[in-house]
Nucleic acid binder design. Sequence first.
DNA 1: GAGCGTCACAACCGCCGGTTGTTCACTAGG
DNA 2: CCTAGTGAACAACCGGCGGTTGTGACGCTC
Lengths: 310, 310
Amino acid sequence: MDLEGVRTFVAVAEAGQFQAAADDLGISQQAVSKRVATLERTLGVSLLVRSGRGTQPSVDGQAFLPHARELIRVAARAVGSVRPGRRALRVDVLNRRTAPATALHAFHRSHPDVELDVVTLPDAHLDAAVAAVVGGSVDATFRAISVPGGEVPSPVRATRVIDDRHQLLVGPRHPLAGATGLRPADLAGHRIWMPGMQADTEWGAYYDELGRAFGLRIDTMGPSFGVEVLLDELAESAELATFVGEGTRYLWPEAYDLRRIPIVDPTPVYPHSIVWREDNAHPVLAAFLDHLMAHRRPPQGRTWEPAWAR
Amino acid sequence: MDLEGVRTFVAVAEAGQFQAAADDLGISQQAVSKRVATLERTLGVSLLVRSGRGTQPSVDGQAFLPHARELIRVAARAVGSVRPGRRALRVDVLNRRTAPATALHAFHRSHPDVELDVVTLPDAHLDAAVAAVVGGSVDATFRAISVPGGEVPSPVRATRVIDDRHQLLVGPRHPLAGATGLRPADLAGHRIWMPGMQADTEWGAYYDELGRAFGLRIDTMGPSFGVEVLLDELAESAELATFVGEGTRYLWPEAYDLRRIPIVDPTPVYPHSIVWREDNAHPVLAAFLDHLMAHRRPPQGRTWEPAWAR
DNA sequence: GAGCGTCACAACCGCCGGTTGTTCACTAGG
DNA sequence: CCTAGTGAACAACCGGCGGTTGTGACGCTC
């Protein structure tokens, strides 16, 4: 089915005759006739009833017409989604499960009418993300600013907006499964598995420093086969454990019986900052920043974070 | 923008490489490359990041991808809307403002998930509508059965489902504007204007008989310029009046100050029957018929209807 | 550096979709 | 009943789009 044919059908249905539609579309009446005939042939039904004085939609044409209009609307939105300039607010997140994605979801729920595009940059490094913000391919990105002092070069700005408190995720057979709270020191000697968090990534740097600070064995080795595999392994294992943020959205079958155990005294927090270009005039961006600041929950109790985040 | 190009992009994004997408689509890898390149050129952005080992969506590609999928879904629904066999329930109404259309709307609200197509047959005559039901181009039609006894030939069935009580619609300057209720005899001498209701239509036959029964001057002459024009004229005129059904949905600006005045003793009711084919197995049809029967409100008080409807 | 996998480019070609010119069907008017 | 006029379809033609096969460039692996 050809979109031009659909547009032509709509034009004819609205104009009431082929010649007028042809004038609207800037083509000949014969071309309109051909396009409609082709569309009718591909659909296998007659869409228009031709009479001596103009044309009107047939029964099938009436049923098809609203779908045709919807198709054209969706096509226009699709084109608009990538048009430089006025397009949906495009926010980069490292991962669609972490706290920033949850915050985006919450913003979307409180502003149902705004258009959001949640994307993940192919190159996950901070400088590449900042370059993307400067270049305008994304309007904002969530990052842990791993630069001492948290300074970023103008015209880029960054603000801490989410402190994601860490929890330990273990299966029912794990020796710590019954704990209601754990101190980082309690984890010494236990193997904490965070596959895919290689040292050259933002997460890797965080867990590297966290491990060294409390003498933990955080194993970032091995390829990540996806979160489902990880959860499946956790459910079975009496040794494996992993860190998850309070704000992450993991779903697992009831039978897995996994437990989230808060970590306290101090609680490691993952410092999510929002990075944007200060001269970005996108109307939704300001609202989103306001939303983030309004929903910022300062961490309670004693917390820990890497030296480079302070 | 070409739908095939969009489909191809989605296939590549899902497969992760051009060759696999080409196999899925049954075309050559080079054709896939060309299609994607053409789509990228028309959109003006790069959708895919090519690497030595496969391909993944770029930032723009990620933003475009959900719109592309939606586009394909809508296209499939559009094709499905006219495919013989399994399609949305298609109901014919004489007019999208009358009581049957309101009933359809109510059914849609109470069954939000079912797909409905409301259409108006090009040929408004009863026999043509029955032929459409028999032929399957519509699943049901709302008609006033103008056959004495209300019999229709098998396999078609018909049942009275809506008795639309008539009201008089007048502007504020009309001499009857202040009435709270009127008898048909009170309307004698007043001009009642129902443009477009020619005698050879279903409505025309009704108002013809109504006029003769009570000695009313019902003027069906003149072309109908649309309901907006009619309402506009009513608002200004001190002479014009028109009939409307209780179930009709007319909207007019507040300033028009039009009044709906009930007609009683007897109340003319317009007899809407639903006509369907008894061996039509469409699952929604049965639910719709049930809905209509459940919401049937028998007229109260003394009513009038044409001899051919009784 | 050899080999392989992946995608882009080039050359070729059939056919789709546009054009103009003409015919057919229907309506209105005398 | 004939004629004029309107509106859409048909016919012939043609350029370019979108497919094919063949080949080249690039990057990764061993």
